[in-house]
Write a protein that binds this DNA or RNA. Structure first.
Lengths: 211, 211, 211, 211
DNA sequence: ACTAGCGGGACTCCCCGTTGTT
DNA sequence: AACAACGGGGAGTCCCGCTAGT
């Protein structure tokens, strides 16, 4: 189970890149096997059909995204001295940096690619994406709630909304980056939400201070 | 030149809905003509090939989007008494309301649909989308600059970045709304950026007030 | 019936060139009308359908070919002082010169074009071509017979066969000229048969002469 | 690798017959597969597209034609006692007999079929046909040169020209045979050129003999 | 863990010809 | 006489997936 695994991963790599560039149904198995230098039978040995490939791609994508978030924010927790606000701000900065360091810009979000072709996928896959998005959203929401429990916000915004804003900005940033061929948009947009959060929890121009 | 025009529009309506749900290449001409109740010849009379259809769809989408923005912000200018900040905030609120009033949520953004299948489209079409996005961005940026010339921001954010944030939030919101089947996300996200802008230009906790 | 006639001829010109270059069934009405700058209705006004076009093309081709042969050999008869051999030899030379003077080489033989797609044409058209070929063959045969009645051939060859040889050489020469992109092949091949004929009827190295 | 090869050859056989009867573009893949009793997928497994089929057909045709020429003239060399003239004359006679023995006359020349639809084929294929024709021409030319080095011609005709005459007569003969539905034309035309060659190199009515 | 060969079914594009309108 | 609009019918291409082998 060694050579087979490598082939499987190669297929997934090629497929993911193609799907992000052309969409799922425009990505033919034929072109995947041509690039992977295997035959069709080889492909079907690893993936029973195209849906199985889609599922595998998405699962892999979710796992790798989870890892990114966890690694980044574990490091942020490490750097912030127990202050959830510090940790969140540091985490977002690290995230922005990571996005900026991608050699050829962000390749795209598989989630977005899927929702814009949702009719092509079966229920379980769509369910899977929804759960992953919900999971990431909860991840950010719980951190925001932690912040809110220690700091006062100068505007009334609930944590759910704010968590979504982070994710929306990233996904929207990816799209704009692709349209305008500007790889700096995603990191800069992340920094923009970060500014918002900082502003939101800035000690309320401390009335005491003012006094 | 009357019946033909109606057929053409019907084709575009059907095609747009299908593209937003399944992507461009998964949208077959066959299904379009079945829904439009015409024959293939009828279709190809109006659109020489699928690329021409894509171009026409995008052009129509851009025009209609332009109209929405212009209508909404013309009304906002009307309601705000010359204050650019008021106008921007009112405009965003109106936009949010408009998005909330869509019967079945926002159907999706054709721009996003295209960038996530960019390999499928020819240069001119991609160029067209880029120009439209740039145009809308400039639209928001000039309004933000007008605000900035009259009000002080409590954070350093350039207008370009902030304008992009509006658009990213909408596009990202559409994606999240589709994933989570929650039509309220787009309007709420628009209100979230609105909050940010309000906060950003809020008179600096009026030191006078504090006094 | 003046402008209409001009349009009709223009259509035939364009169609003939296209048929010689791509064959009949690969020549679409659509491309003909595009080149002729008329609409489909205009085309169908002149030719009820594609078969009618084919017939008209062939009839025109036969007439023009007849004219060439008749003109050339009328002139040859004029130059030769009543000697059929002289006339034939002069005629072939004139023919070769005429073929050499075509600006871009011989465009091709419509007859050949038809026989290599015979399944595409109806009986009457094929009949027409056969009759035309037979007619031209008789034309040459009767001239050869006239020669044979006045001169002794040094080989036994019947006139029919020799007449055919002239036509075969031309048609074959056109093909070779097209394959090798050498416009000089047709005239040179005509001169080659001419040599044969000359040799054939050369006074038999007159034994009397030798004595 | 056995069953596949048989299918491939069957396709080529059917395609060649159809192309000679109707031309390349009028020969639909659908009819080929119907006759071959396979499906379109089977066809496209063997030939990526119609051009590949054309190329394969032409290559096969050239090879088989080469074999015919070589076999016939090897036998001719065998029968003639080292005399190139004898060998050439015998070879042409054998060739004529072979053409006469074809059950339903000569089916046609693929080269001619291609040049009369040259716009339909890509450069490499046209190149291929040109090279083949050149090759056959050289084949005959070198034999004629061998004759000329041993015998005196009574007319000035260069070998190139004479070699071409052989090929032109065959190609032209095929066309006439098809038009007039007379399968005897090709062999008789070959015998006609043979007569010419014989006459050309006939010992000049040996003046010595006459004396 | 893979290959050769092919079934069956779209899909895009094109093409010939007709109809209703002007 | 000409045009807009469309009917009806493939043609060529491609693609997913299966079977039989090794």
């Amino acid at each position: 189970v060694r050579k087979g695994e490598a082939t499987r991963e190669r297929i997934l790599d090629i497929a993911e890149a193609a799907v992000l560039a052309k969409g799922f149904s425009a990505t033919s198995i034929e072109e995947i096997i041509a690039q992977a230098e295997i035959t069709k039978s080889g492909f079907f040995y690893h993936f029973a059909d195209k849906n199985v490939l889609a599922r595998a791609m998405m699962e892999r994508y979710i796992v790798s995204n989870n890892e990114i978030f966890e690694t980044v924010f574990a490091r942020a927790d490490d750097l912030a001295d127990g202050d959830p606000l510090q940790s969140l701000l540091i985490g977002l900065k690290l995230l922005a940096e990571q996005m900026a360091d991608l050699p050829s810009g962000h390749p795209g979000c598989l989630i977005a690619s899927v929702v814009y072709q949702e009719r092509m996928f079966d229920r379980p896959l769509l369910q899977l994406t929804a759960e992953a998005v919900q999971f990431w959203n909860n991840f950010f929401r719980s951190r925001i709630e932690a912040v809110a429990s220690k700091h006062v916000a100068s505007e009334d915004i609930d944590a759910e909304q704010l968590a979504r804003m982070i994710m929306c900005t990233v996904d929207g940033g990816i799209i704009m980056g692709k349209v305008l061929h500007d790889t700096s948009i995603v990191p800069r947009q992340i920094l923009a939400v970060r500014s918002f959060i900082k502003l939101l929890f800035r000690p309320a121009m401390s009335l005491e201070q003012a006094a």
